[in-house]
Design a protein around this nucleic acid. Sequence first.
DNA 1: GTGGTCTAGACCACT
DNA 2: GTGGTCTAGACCACC
Lengths: 122, 122, 122, 122
Amino acid sequence: MPWDLCADRPIYVQIMEEIERRIITGIYVPGSKLPSVRELAVEAGVNPNTMQKALAEMEQGGLIRTERTAGRFLTEEQHRIEALRKELLQKRMRAFLTEMQSIGVGVKEIEAWIQRTKEDQT
Amino acid sequence: MPWDLCADRPIYVQIMEEIERRIITGIYVPGSKLPSVRELAVEAGVNPNTMQKALAEMEQGGLIRTERTAGRFLTEEQHRIEALRKELLQKRMRAFLTEMQSIGVGVKEIEAWIQRTKEDQT
Amino acid sequence: MPWDLCADRPIYVQIMEEIERRIITGIYVPGSKLPSVRELAVEAGVNPNTMQKALAEMEQGGLIRTERTAGRFLTEEQHRIEALRKELLQKRMRAFLTEMQSIGVGVKEIEAWIQRTKEDQT
Amino acid sequence: MPWDLCADRPIYVQIMEEIERRIITGIYVPGSKLPSVRELAVEAGVNPNTMQKALAEMEQGGLIRTERTAGRFLTEEQHRIEALRKELLQKRMRAFLTEMQSIGVGVKEIEAWIQRTKEDQT
DNA sequence: GTGGTCTAGACCACT
DNA sequence: GTGGTCTAGACCACC
């Protein structure tokens, strides 16, 4: 899953979202050390300062803890991660439903589509 | 509904999408005359040439018909509009499901959420 | 009162403190527009980015509100400013008393000193 | 009590201040032998030359006396130590009162605060 | 003109 | 090697 840096929001925000996604999906495991600022910057093809900003911003959410000389660590508190997942899910869900509504697609039509998708998977 | 021209795709493509949205949602009614290139260009804060390109491009899809002296008119053929709606719906739907999958949300959870939303509306 | 950028804390923190001081002392009046990032940066002899960081950081405290194209404005809520004053006062006070204690100076001696100062002023 | 060598004054001055603090607070007792230059240099994470300079400088103040073969000794003359204490006290006091004044805190308010602190201690 | 974002590259303190 | 700070200078969107 590459970084995909091509939307209209600031890069550092996109980075935060990608990192959150990795946390939610368990790519970064609770309590473990995150890659260093420089590593992540290289991986994302971004200036270290930008990555720094993204990580510093994330720190406020309490998901990440910094140990100044050792690196950054992902919280071990599962409830924080679960809360993040819920929050993200809710945000995306609302955005999706709003957009669907704006193009005149009702809940029923969405449900039908999802049903069809479910059948495709089986 | 402002234009908000600041994504990564070419401006004329963004314009096409916005106009398509207006067609789908009925802001522009089937068979009616569209605003002039100049008006649209001013509204979107864009060079008339850019708007021209967007409209010309759309013409190829058959949604818009030009009458040399009278201006541009939206097609009256409902099936074209319906097809456009389906296409857009499908695109957004897929994107949404892909994203949900990427944060580890299954179809069941999505269905539950939509159920809850339906109840909220009633 | 110049900027005095010569302690061990980060410059941007010192800037925040100086701006807070100006708010507390009424140099920046409630509700008014602050000087622009660039002006302040020049005044402080600092890179605009550094000033930006300081101001962005301050925004979280709710004392400053940003209007993206118009500039930054000081809150009109007097209680926030009063709270800031109390907080700063308390912090400095504690630090001072702790230091005095660490060099073996008791409260009595401090009081005596202040008495003498008061007499000097009269 | 670590050394924390990261302010704007020359390192050797900071060292002098720290040693003076230790003298005032009785960590180094009057008449006793100080640790060797090397020991102190290691403790402070500093080049022995720098520590040497600090100690040499202090010698001029008469607080420290060097005995060629035995090392450096702290003076036994209490009045010197007392003078040093007064000097430091005065410096900090002035700095404190100046700062309080700069944030618009009058002597009365300071007295009130100290009163409250005194009550807290009892 | 405003605030905001980003890069490139440097330096610092701490371990 | 780690995170953090800072500068210089560029570009962006909005008004």
